[in-house]
Computed example of a mutant assay.
Amino acid sequence: MEKLNPYLNFPGNCEEAFNFYKSVFGGEFAYLGRFADIPSDEGMVIPEHKLNKIMHIALPLGKECLLMGSDCDEGWCPEVVVGNNVTLSINVESREQADKLFEGLCNGGKINMQIGDVFWGSYYGMCTDKYGVTWMINYVKPEGNS
């Protein structure tokens, strides 16, 4: 495994929260993407009122950790309730390792997003294990590989 990072879900105030974290920890966002940035060929229908909300944001905390987050959209993550709004995001070193961890963590749990190739260039999936912990498995594919 390469890294384990905390992923925070918010009920619509992710940008406000991350601007606060940025003021506390310093630094610059490594990524800020909105739901409006999702390519139309992905087949996702995003309601108009959510287009400007945060799809994904990352704030480096030192050299080895990213604090990441998003505004949680109905249907792909549990309802945001304080206490369940933290997800563990694992960046792995291979597609095979991603499949193994995803299969293991989903056993007896719920698949929130089937693992597969995604538009941002990774191999990614999300599930909630049988104990209620939500996991993101992410393999960043080498450039030029599918």
Rank of each mutant, 00 (worst) to 15 (best):
E2H: 03
E2D: 07
L4C: 09
N9S: 05
N9H: 07
F10N: 09
E16K: 15
F18V: 01
F20K: 10
Y21S: 05
S23P: 03
V24L: 12
F25D: 10
G26L: 03
F29L: 06
A30W: 01
L32C: 03
L32R: 10
G33H: 01
A36P: 01
D37R: 07
P39M: 03
G43T: 06
K50V: 02
L51D: 02
N52M: 10
N52K: 11
M55Y: 14
M55N: 08
M55Q: 15
M55A: 14
H56N: 09
A58R: 00
L59N: 02
L59T: 10
L61H: 09
K63F: 03
E64R: 08
C65H: 10
C65A: 03
C72L: 05
C72W: 01
D73E: 09
D73M: 10
E74S: 13
E74D: 11
C77L: 12
V80K: 09
V81N: 13
V82E: 13
V82Q: 15
N85G: 05
V86Q: 15
T87L: 11
L88V: 14
N91S: 04
E93F: 15
E96Y: 08
E96K: 14
E96T: 13
Q97V: 14
A98K: 00
F102A: 09
F102G: 03
G104W: 06
L105W: 13
C106W: 12
C106P: 12
N107Y: 05
G108V: 05
K110R: 03
K110S: 01
K110C: 08
I111N: 07
I115D: 07
D117F: 02
F119W: 08
F119Q: 06
G121S: 02
Y123I: 01
Y124R: 02
Y124L: 10
M126Y: 09
M126E: 13
M126V: 13
T128F: 00
T128A: 00
D129K: 07
G132T: 02
V133W: 06
V133Q: 10
T134S: 14
T134W: 07
M136I: 08
M136D: 02
P142N: 09
E143H: 15
E143T: 15
E143V: 14
G144L: 04
N145L: 11
